[in-house]
Each structure stands twice: as structure tokens, then as C-alpha cells.
Design a protein around this nucleic acid. Structure first.
Lengths: 343, 343
DNA sequence: TTGTAGGCGTTATCAA
DNA sequence: TTGATAACGCCTACAA
């Protein structure tokens, strides 16, 4: 069965293609009568306009794409929901585009930008290590949202929204210190990890210094490598490793909530308790952390607010047709849960 | 800055467009020399072929789309991961397409089918209540995966993969009975919910009957309505409601793991314990349920296997160019966790 | 080995 | 109010 096209419909209705086009797109200059007839025929024949052809022809469409690296990450879920809501309110079309772990997000962006005639792009998550030059190849407005950036790669000339990973992890480790903990382990990414892993590690170190605690390499536990390094399982494995090592410590800073959850379970499985034997602090503020038993002490990233701000900036750029180079930093919220205690 | 097209590149290189096309697509019939030169020029000018134009021209592409309703649902994450892996192994392109809560998945399918010249479609999740007629409008092979279907809507003429929701929930409720529970509450969707909610409720009733327990409406707690009805929060709220109601019961069947988690926390917050005061059973087998404290008794759906089978069927249809009307039902695995106990 | 030209399915312009 | 027709950017016979 051949795909039915606008031409077929035109023929069947005994009209020209442009008339059919008018009917489809609610364009003026067509009598109600013919329009209705055409629409009927369209329905009968299951005609669906081909978007590729449309996009090809149209010079601009009101659509915004959100590119996500690691779409399974539940941290992004509420952000995506918020993005969708706002974009739809603005009568724009929302396109969610997954980016493969081994794909370059900028390449994907350039492709989809042309394909869909985008008005704007949001880069969500991932660890941006792209040169300004490469980012500059993107011709529509875009915002980097929730993307960990070390100073060396802060993109002052590009719009971005994030929390200060270093400062926030400083905050939570400092909190652990204030509870009297001196031996604080950290579950962190490998040293060559150029992203949030690095930043959160830095905050950890700074907090130790501020509290007069010496940095001890034996308290640094490296997560499993690979894409799953920030997962629950990774936390579980790492905690087991720690427990086997017999290193003495009273608190653990897991650089991600998921890791914290895995760690908590591992500790439980070894007949130890949180927070009695180990205090655990996470990072991100996943919804889950409120419901876990014990609930977690963590840094909650204001995801909805961040999503809103991301789009505010993006739409401002779209409307004003000007580049923006704001780097908006949101404060994280220290949530005190049941997973930590004073000693 | 005008978008650079294949023509521009051709002009810049002093060659024809077909030569450029050959260079881009690794087509034969082009000297290594010119090819290299062209590729250089392309790189210098950030030329990216327009996919809309490509799709328009191509009559077929090796791509498969997975349509997901409720993409935030972590139940789908491992399935999607598996889909991606297999599709890439087959050298196909994988497209993940979100379907809005208020969007009709078949409409979306028909659009994207034309737009991308798909080879096949996977419908993932959601609650299919579409007429055979409407499904028949889709012209490429497709498989319904993990889609709850009551008998009235079993699509015998379409390929599908799922667990038997009714049977599996029977299994787990029967297990609760075998532990000695007589008063088993269920946290279920509203009675008009035409999907897994209904099916899992049926299994619950059957298990009661088998065990000579009378069905008691007072033990049925309706979840919050709306899209979030199967969420953690919904479980939390419903459990609170139950606890306030002072209804007597010793076990709870939450029709979803997420609901079970919320319920567990609510019980904890009311100074009761799981499983001492209430046994709780979930459904789905989310990764989380292994790490929660207590770990959950649940029905694990073999998500990876189901994903593989889904694609096996799909590729078989693609390769043989024949419709398939297998309805493959996978058994769920009763996982016995710490959230239930005998009385 | 390379170039020209036609067409993929739309939309938009211009006449009628 | 309508209908031809020229793009949109690319691929692919077919010709050279």
C-alpha cells in the first residue's frame, strides 16, 4: 500500500494541492465547505502529512529540543516534566532527544537543529568539556542546564544554569563535620573524571580543610567505572569494598543519592546501621531520598526552579534574538534526614 | 548566516552535488582524493546534512522507533537500555519517542512512521484500548510490549509481549495468603481504570477466593487519581489514608513497587513497622526494591528478556515481511523480600 | 570518475 | 476562493 500523499488527497477531492494544504493548516482563503469535504476525505484515507517534507519546506518551526545524556537518570525526570509543561504553555513543540553515552551532544544538536528547524535547545546533564569553538557552531539559542563545569570550562560566553557543585558539597561535608565527624569517607569517581565527580570531591576537600581535618587518601573510595558509576549498584559495591577494608570512619559522603542508597543497603547487609554506625550524606535530592528508611541527608537541587530559569533564559534569547551569557547558579538546599547523626 | 547545503559544498569544491553526496555516504565511484578534499571542506564549514531532506528522499531507513508513554517511569529504564543495545547491534538506528500523557500513541506512530521511514515500531507501556481498526492503520511491523490488556482488548491479531498481570498478582496475593494473612488490603486504581490496575485487582480477588477469604471492599484503597496514581507519593498518601481509617489488616498488596515504597514510609512515619505490623507486597521488580530497607516482596517482570523477545518478534516480522500474531506471555518471578512475614 | 536533472511531499507565491 | 508551480535539501539514475 503506497503512502497516501497530499497529491492523492487533492486528486480524490478534485482540487489542487494548495487547497488541501490550506485545509490541513487552517489557513484562510478556503471555503468552509470544501475544507470540510477535504478533511473528511483525509480522515477516510488515514492521510498524515509527512513531517520531513514539512520541516524541509518550513523555514522555522516553534519547537524546542531538550537533549539529555543519560535519560534513565531519575534526577532528570522532574526537570523534563517541568520543561514539557512550560514549553507546551508557550505553544511550542517539545522534543525530547536522547543522546547516547558515546555520542557527542553537539553533533546531535547540529543535526536536529537542521532537521527540525529548532528555535532553541536545552542541553541537560552530561559533562561538558567542549570547546567554545565547537559550541559556537550551534546557530540557535541554547542553554546549558545542570551541567557540571570546572572553572577551566566555565563557558562565560554561554548561558547556563546549575548549582555550584563544589560549594554545595562543601556545605554538606561541612555539615557532617559540624556533627562531630572527623573520619569522613567519600565515594567518588576516578581522579580523571572531569565533571561533577571532580567538583564534589573538591568541595569535600575544602570542607575538611576548613574544619582542620587532614585529607586521608584511605578514606577515598573509587566508584565502579563506566556509565553506571553513579548508580545504586555502584554505591553498594563500593560500600562493601569499604567495609571489607576495615578502614575506620564514622561518616560517608556519597557524591550522588543513588550511591548513598546502595551504600546504605550494603551497610545494612553487613549488620551495621545507618546512622548509628555510619552517617551517610548524599547529593541531588532525589524524590526517593525522602521515602527511603532512613531518609537521607542530602543537598537538594531545586530542579523545578532550575528548569524554569533555563527556559526563561532560552525564551529571552529567542525573543530578543540576542546571545545571553548569564551563568545562573542556584543554591542547593541542605536537607537534613535520618541518615546522619552527631557523635 | 545561511544554512550551508550540499550545493554550497559542491560549489566550494568545484564539483557536482552528486560527488559530494558520494563522499558523505561512503558511496563508491569517487576517487579517494576528491573525497578527502570534500570531507575537509565539509568539516571547515560545519556542514551537516539535513535529515528531513534525507528522510524525504529515502524510501526506507534502517530505523526502529520505541514509543513510550510515561517515560519517567523507572520500570522502563532497563528495557530501554536493552532495546538500544540490541537495535544498535543490528546496525539499526534507535529512536526513542516520548508520547504525551494526553496524546494518542497511534497518531504519534503514524506521524513518525512517515517522517522517519521507519522499519518497525515498539509500543512500550501505556494502556492500550485501541480498536483493531485503528492499530491496523499502522503500515510497518510493530509489537506491543508490556502493555496491560484485559481479555476484551487482547489483540490476538497483533504481536505482543507482556506478563499476565492477573495471574502474577494472583500469585503474589496467594503467597500472602500462604503466610497466613487473612486481612489483605489492596492499593489499587479507581474502578474505571481499564488497565493493569484492573487486571491486578482481578488477580487479587481470585487469590482471595482460592484461599476462602471474603472480598471486603473496606480493604480496597483507591490511589490518588491522575497520571501520578502509580507513584511513590500516591502510595504514601494512600497508606496514610488507610492508617487513619483504622481498618484492620495485616498485609497490603500495592499494585506497583513505587506505591509499596511510599506505603512503607507512611507506615514507618506512623510508628508502625514493616513487616512486623504490616506485610507489604509490590509488583514490577524495580531495581530499587532490592536496596530498600526492608527489601520488597514483589513480582519481578523479566524486563530484559521481554525486551529481547519484543525485538526478536519485530525483526522477524521485518525480515519475513509477514504479520505475526504471537502473544508472548512471560512468567513473573516471585521475589521474596523482607517486607513480608508469616503470621 | 564525475555532473545533470528529476523527484521525494510539503508550503507559499502568484495568477486566475 | 482556487490552482499551478517553484522552492526546500538531498539522493540517484542516467549521461558524459
Amino acid at each position: 500500500m503506497k503512502n497516501v500523499t497530499i497529491k492523492d488527497i487533492a486528486k480524490m477531492c478534485g482540487v489542487g494541492v494548495s487547497t488541501v494544504s490550506r485545509a490541513i493548516n487552517d489557513n484562510p482563503g478556503i471555503s468552509a465547505e470544501t475544507k470540510e469535504h477535504i478533511l473528511d476525505v483525509i480522515r477516510e484515507n488515514n492521510y498524515v502529512p509527512n513531517n520531513s517534507a514539512r520541516n524541509l519546506k518550513r523555514s522555522e518551526t516553534e519547537t524546542i529540543a531538550v537533549l539529555v545524556k543519560g535519560i534513565g537518570n531519575s534526577f532528570f525526570s522532574p526537570m523534563i516534566t517541568e520543561f514539557e509543561k512550560i514549553i507546551q504553555e508557550k505553544k511550542y513543540t517539545f522534543v525530547l532527544q536522547r543522546v547516547d553515552e558515546n555520542q557527542d551532544e553537539i553533533d546531535v544538536a547540529m543535526e536536529i537543529e537542521k532537521e527540525k528547524r529548532l528555535k532553541g535547545i536545552v542541553f541537560l546533564g552530561g559533562y561538558f568539556s567542549h570547546s567554545k569553538e565547537k559550541l559556537g557552531k550551534i546557530t540557535v539559542p541554547f542553554v546549558l542546564s545542570t551541567i557540571g563545569m570546572t572553572d577551566s570550562m566555565v563557558h562565560r560566553e554561554f548561558a547556563s544554569v546549575a548549582v555550584d557543585d563544589e560549594k554545595e558539597s562543601f556545605k554538606i561535608v561541612d555539615y557532617l563535620c559540624s556533627l562531630g565527624h572527623k573520619k569522613i569517607a567519600i565515594f567518588a569517581a576516578s581522579p580523571d573524571d572531569e565533571s561533577i565527580g571532580k567538583l564534589r570531591m573538591r568541595g569535600y576537600k575544602k570542607a575538611l580543610i576548613k574544619n582542620g581535618i587532614e585529607y586521608d587518601e584511605n578514606l577515598v573510595f573509587e566508584l565502579t567505572s563506566g556509565n553506571e558509576r553513579y548508580s545504586i549498584k555502584s554505591g553498594y559495591i563500593t560500600a562493601k569494598k569499604m567495609l571489607k577494608s576495615n578502614v575506620e570512619c564514622t561518616a560517608i559522603f556519597a557524591i550522588t543519592d543513588a550511591i548513598a542508597i546502595g551504600a546504605c543497603r550494603a551497610i545494612w547487609d553487613e549488620n551495621k546501621k545507618v546512622p548509628e554506625d555510619y552517617s551517610i550524606a548524599g547529593f541531588d535530592g532525589l524524590e526517593m531520598t525522602k521515602y527511603y528508611i532512613p531518609s537521607f541527608t542530602t543537598i537538594r537541587q531545586p530542579v523545578e526552579k532550575m528548569a524554569r530559569e533555563t527556559l526563561r533564559m532560552l525564551f529571552q534569547m529567542i525573543d530578543s534574538k540576542k546571545r545571553l551569557n548569564e551563568n545562573v547558579i542556584f543554591p542547593g538546599e541542605l536537607i537534613i534526614g535520618e541518615s546522619t547523626r552527631g557523635i
